[in-house]
Amino acid sequence: MDGSQFFFTEKATELSYQDLIFMLNAAGTTLAATLFSLLIGTLLGFILGMITTFKIPVLNKLPYIFIEPLRNSPLVVQLFLLFYGLPMLTKINFSKWQAAFITLGCNTAAFIAVIVHASVAAIPQHQWESAYALGHSYASSFTHIIFGQAFRIFIPPALNIYISQLHTSSLLSFIGFMEITHAG
């Protein structure tokens, strides 16, 4: 009894300087993985979201084939499908970092695309019509009139998504990715 007690106290005191460095490294890994995949996700999500705002009948629904499954399934499943599933069937073999970037990035992209669509749709229709009346083309009215207003609406929900993706990145520990939850 005394021995085990001693064992546990010794175990507890072992948690020290090196462990702190180890945890900090892992925190850095978390940050790096999250930031880079958020960057990928934002760019991809912006492109997809823009396509959904076009008024072209079939094309503007196409991104939803990509978006909806990603929004409606857990990240763990997507991660396992990519990291453990895909190498069994094809020659594609992702490293942990690649799998982390691709899944987190695509997942973020799906959420960002929906936010982009919502924030462009939130701009009243008369803004477009006024722009056309002033002689702007579609592209010009988007960049000069709509974008600025839509971006203001876009920021708060996008920041929410970024923070929740930072939390979600803890799930990368499932594939043995040495981030902070795995390190702890």
Binding site: V77, Q78, L81, G85, L86
Partner: peptide, 11 residues
């Protein structure tokens, strides 16, 4: 040992 099929099913 059929990870792709199983994970895509639960996906």
């Amino acid at each position: 040992f059929r990870p792709f099929e199983i994970y895509s099913t639960i996906f």
